[in-house]
Design a binder for these strands. Structure first.
Length: 1000
RNA sequence: GCUGAAGUGGUGGAAUUGGUAGACACGUUGGACUUAAAAUCCAAUGAACAGUAAUGUUCGUGCGGGUUCAAGUCCCGCCUUCAGUACCA
């Protein structure tokens, strides 16, 4: 009987769906286990073979846990708000909701055909109003919360108002904006309602703030840093200005320390933890206040990690954007400073960062006063100081910091040395450990640690500084000038934001005529005509009705992509609840994700924001745990093989791409060769040469040229490269020439000649097709989708093959070359249960060998799954099936448990054979076979007999043989005598059950 | 520059605690079946050398050292590749 995978797979996919085999209940006697994948953005391109890698791994684990008796939650959904659908809408006018729906349907169909055990009754879509209702709800909770630094948690805003009424804000230790003024309880009570709201906004966890953005007036939109080149927009070349815009921000920075601490408690990959740690960027030091001379009351606050070097300060540098620049610049310096500030403003932050080598700056003419020596310290501005980090100002210690050093050298500023016995004539000395301070008054002869402590103490005494911990992590901007995102549940009364009551949610995304910003530069929602809030009837009404008394304008920005993904994992626990975000019963049962699988590219985005929201929701009693995912695994990317076509303009002769050339032409990729027409002709005629060439093209080509042409010199005049839509015939290495020709019409033909190089002979130029491995992307024409593989080999083959490619966490190129191997394995597995056309599994007693194979396999597979080493368990199955086939095993006692072992990996074939064994129920929840050691117990061991660590022969000996007897037997062996050739061994090492090593 | 990961046959990769390096598969070669091809099955396959052969010897896990009876694995010093990040004060 044939292994008809198409029929079998369709049959069981239907069965699972109809019987809701994988539906998870929120109550169970079984222990819970939550296996989660990062949900995909449903792009128009559909799934490619890289997507399912993580899904297959998590599916294997989920299925395994079901066999192990767990109540498994394994859901899937879609992160369906996003830019591509909006871009498509702008181009075509097609509503993003329609495109999104179509894409989701295609994703679903693709996912279904791979046979995942998702509980589809729990599907979520972030763009679904029933879902974003709760995104809006969380936003309201954030708005209605403030952060109590003493309690180290978020609290209700009412608590804060109560405190203000009682004692003003002078005693409170809360996270807030920097420029909050002090007020008493009486002040508070006499404030107008609007004033009070303004103050509260400075404390809320989500708040409106002026944020600098790159605004392009001609395009009417905000641009990201990488959309700007040389101060103008990449598209169109229009000027871009840094503009302050009112935007919603999230006060994530107050969670910096807790986000850092929480990393200790989760089992996440170290690289991922490291990148979050870097991103949060904690540094310990001190803030120091310098008075500005001749400017009463003006001070410059700096953050430094080296307060011990304070006597080494010889100048200060402000970021050009620093607010003090205008006020302290002297008239003489004004022109120069203004010019510098303007020039800097034109450059994007990215450009400034990229250009590290150029040293630039201007003296402001002003002087600050050193807190201890009272000496004047010149104040400069320089673009190496970033406004967005620390206070936007530094105290420059050129002897201890290389950038300060370079700056001082460049502008001829003094470089006082405060390090004992250190030469600073060439470079700064930044080695904290070996620091001994000198020329520093009361810090003399102290090391880094003591000097730091003492300096901070002295600064505190003066009231000019204190110990401080600084974080790189900034508050997150939460507004986007886009259409396809969650609308804010916010309307404005007299310019002040008001939350819509949660009971009126969701606020639906309004319909618009076009998805671009309005002519006046408002976000796309500015185009909506039905976009005003009627506070009488609590509903969205037409903009005409705005009267600023009962009907008010609604917020025009939408939320960013990370909003919905920051809590979706919790919503899966109770996804259809329309009363609450999720019931407390549900969240107390499922609690957190036990295993989360996804890409490492989300390290500092999704995975940081999610942890932030989780901690916030924990503070407010919505969720029971502070970390949402106990264990996380980053699956490696599956890379695509891109075809590049390189065009070489050569003048005669031919040439091999050698090492030198590789280095000289950056576009030329590894192991490529290109040849003249003449040689190509020769190759075509001479099959033997072609074959030889294929086996070792570099050497052969070299030989050919040395013999026939005699020289090797010509240099390409021009090298162009471009991604080409190259197709390979039947997954082989043969180019699909026809398709290729359409793309590059001047090509006459293409032939395959080497493993990594191809020659295409054009009319006048020589083209070479090179291949390179890179990320799969539509624009690179290197996407492989799983549909054809499912069709040609089946889902079980795809699942096994993706696992067999290599370790889960490792990046690996996609290559279908080995797919027949796993497909053959499934065919062999099928055959094992059949005798010719007939299904044949009998009740015969298993042999010792049968049992040994089975139990060896149980042990290995169980260990492998627990270690997420899925590639090695596929090998283990192959070995098991090969062995059982050789043993001619058809004993039910062996073949039945074998199916359970394989079913997480290849569920369709397992279900089919399981039902053929006479079972009515799905294999999905059948208990995992139990490994019994007794079947693996051996009485003998084949010992490797080594001489000086090198194995010379093998000898089978009883395992219970004593060391003495082993030695005797081995020494007596003729081969031992042969090896020793009369010498007496110095030593004989015997590790029973392992090895014998004779040292001679 | 910094941080992290990784370098093993022609290829993807095994070797979980220092104990037979190269499991399993792909590819290649030879053979069987076939009019032929595909499919399938069988055998060989790290490299070099010696031998008709059985077999033997030497070399081999990026490079150079070290520890050990024994090192892909541990230690020291480098090199290369990939990923992330960067004037972070």
């Amino acid at each position: 009987m044939q292994y008809d995978f198409n029929e079998i797979e369709a049959k069981w996919q239907k069965f699972w769906s109809e019987n809701q085999t994988f539906k998870a209940e929120n109550h169970s006697d079984k222990p819970k286990f939550y296996v989660l994948d990062m949900f995909p953005y449903p792009s128009g391109a559909g799934l490619h073979v890289g997507h399912p890698l993580g899904y297959i791994a998590s599916d294997i684990y989920a299925r395994y846990k079901r066999h192990k008796g767990f109540n498994v939650l394994h859901p899937m959904g879609y992160d369906s708000f996003g830019l591509p659908a909006e871009q498509y809408a702008i181009q075509t006018g097609q509503h993003p909701a329609i495109t999104t729906k179509e894409n989701i349907a295609r994703y679903r169909q693709q996912l279904d055909q791979i046979g995942f055990s998702f509980d589809w009754s729990r599907e979520v879509r972030t763009s679904d109003p029933q879902f974003y209702k709760w995104t809006q709800w969380i936003f309201i909770q954030l708005f209605n919360s403030w952060y109590d630094k003493d309690a180290d948690k978020a609290r209700a805003i009412e608590d804060l108002t109560a405190i203000f009424e009682k004692e003003g804000n002078t005693t409170i230790n809360a996270a807030c904006d920097e420029d909050v003024k002090q007020f008493s309880a009486t002040d508070w009570k006499t404030m107008s309602a609007k004033e009070q709201q303004q103050i509260l906004l400075q404390y809320r966890l989500t708040y409106l703030a002026e944020t600098e953005v790159n605004w392009c007036p001609q395009l009417g939109t905000v641009l990201a840093n990488d959309e700007i080149v040389n101060g103008v927009s990449e598209r169109g070349g229009y000027p871009v200005v840094r503009k302050k815009m009112k935007q919603w921000s999230m006060r994530i920075s107050v969670y910096a320390q807790r986000l850092l601490d929480g990393l200790q408690k989760v089992d996440w990959p170290q690289p991922l933890k490291d990148s979050q740690t870097n991103w949060i960027g904690r540094s310990k030091g001190a803030s120091v206040t310098f008075d500005v001379k001749n400017h009463d009351g003006e001070t410059i606050e700096v953050f430094t990690t080296r307060p011990d070097t304070i006597f080494g300060v010889s100048f200060m540098t402000l970021a050009p954007e620093h607010e003090l620049v205008d006020r302290i610049t002297t008239p003489q310096q004004k022109a120069a400073v203004d010019a510098y500030v303007e020039a800097t403003a034109k450059r994007s932050e990215r450009e400034r960062m990229a250009d590290v080598k150029t040293i630039s700056g201007v003296f402001t003419g002003a002087y600050a006063e050193h807190p201890f020596t009272k000496e004047p310290v010149p104040v400069w501005i320089g673009d190496y100081v970033l406004a967005s980090y620390g206070t936007g100002a530094v105290m420059a210690v050129p002897c201890g910091d290389q950038r300060d050093y370079d700056f001082a050298k460049h502008f001829n500023i003094a470089i006082p040395n405060i390090f004992k016995d250190v030469d600073i004539s060439e470079e700064a000395f930044a080695d904290k450990e070996n620091t001994v301070i000198t020329n520093s008054d009361f810090l003399n002869d102290l090391g880094y640690k003591e000097a730091t402590t003492k300096a901070i103490e002295a600064l505190e005494e003066l009231g000019q500084g204190k110990g401080k911990i600084n974080y790189r992590l900034r508050d997150a901007v939460f507004s986007r000038q886009r259409y396809w995102g969650e609308p804010f549940p916010v309307y404005y009364v007299d310019g002040m934001p008001q939350m819509i009551d949660a009971e009126h949610l969701p606020i639906h995304l309004p319909e618009v005529e076009k998805y671009l910003p309005t002519e006046t530069g408002e976000p796309p929602l500015g185009n909506a005509t039905e976009w005003a809030w009627d506070t009488t009837n609590n509903e969205v009404v037409s903009n005409d009705k705005i009267d600023h008394k009962t009907v008010f304008p609604l917020e025009l920005n939408t939320m960013p992509g990370w909003a919905g993904s920051s809590y979706y994992f919790n919503r899966y626990m109770d996804p259809n609840n329309d009363q609450e975000i999720f019931s407390q019963d549900a969240i107390k049962y499922w609690k957190d994700v036990d295993l989360y699988i996804g890409g490492s590219e989300h390290a500092t985005g999704h995975l940081l924001y999610s942890r932030f929201w989780q901690k916030f929701l924990f503070d407010r009693g919505v969720v029971p745990v502070q970390e949402f995912a106990k264990k996380l695994i980053n699956q490696g990317m599956i890379l695509g093989t891109s075809a590049f076509v390189y065009r070489f303009d050569i003048t005669g002769g031919a040439l091999v791409l050698n090492e030198d050339l590789k280095n000289s032409a950056s576009l030329v990729k590894k192991h490529m060769i290109f040849v003249s027409k003449g040689f190509l002709e020769k190759l075509k005629e001479d099959k033997a040469l072609l074959r030889e060439f294929n086996s070792n093209f570099k050497d052969k080509l070299q030989k050919y040229f040395e013999n026939s042409v005699g020289s090797f010199d010509p240099i390409p005049h021009e090298v162009h490269s471009i991604h080409a839509p190259v197709e390979f015939v039947n997954g082989s290495d043969q180019l699909n020439v026809k398709r290729f020709k359409n793309w590059l019409p001047e090509l006459e033909e293409a032939i395959f000649i080497g493993e990594e190089g191809r020659i295409i002979d054009g009319e006048n130029d020589v083209y070479v097709v090179g291949r390179e491995v890179e990320k799969m992307s539509k624009s690179k024409y290197n996407v492989v989708n799983p549909d054809n593989i499912c069709k040609d080999y089946g889902a079980d083959t795809l699942r096994l093959y993706e696992m067999f490619l290599g370790p889960l966490e490792q990046a690996k190129p996609w290559n279908t070359a080995g797919i027949t191997g796993v497909h053959n394995f499934l065919k062999k597995l099928w055959k094992l249960y059949h005798n010719g056309e007939v299904f044949e599994v009998t009740d015969t007693e298993p042999t010792k060998d049968n049992l040994k194979t089975l139990h060896k396999t149980i042990k290995k597979v169980e260990e492998d799954i627990e270690n997420f080493s899925f590639n090695t368990s596929v090998s283990t199955f192959m070995i098991a099936v090969n062995e059982l086939t050789a043993q001619k095993c058809n004993s039910k006692e062996i073949l039945e448990p074998l199916l359970i072992l394989i079913s997480p990996y290849a569920p369709h074939i397992a279900e089919e054979l399981w039902s053929k064994l006479g079972h009515q129920e799905s294999i999905a929840t059948k208990p995992f076979p139990v490994y019994d050691e007794k079947h693996l117990v051996e009485s003998t061991k084949v010992y490797p007999i080594s001489f000086n660590g090198k194995k010379r022969f093998e000898l089978e000996l009883p395992l219970d043989m004593s060391k003495e007897n082993i030695e005797k037997t081995v020494m007596a062996h003729e081969k031992t005598q042969q090896q020793l050739a009369g010498r007496t061994p110095k030593k004989v090492i015997i590790v029973p059950g392992k090895i014998v090593n004779i040292v001679g």
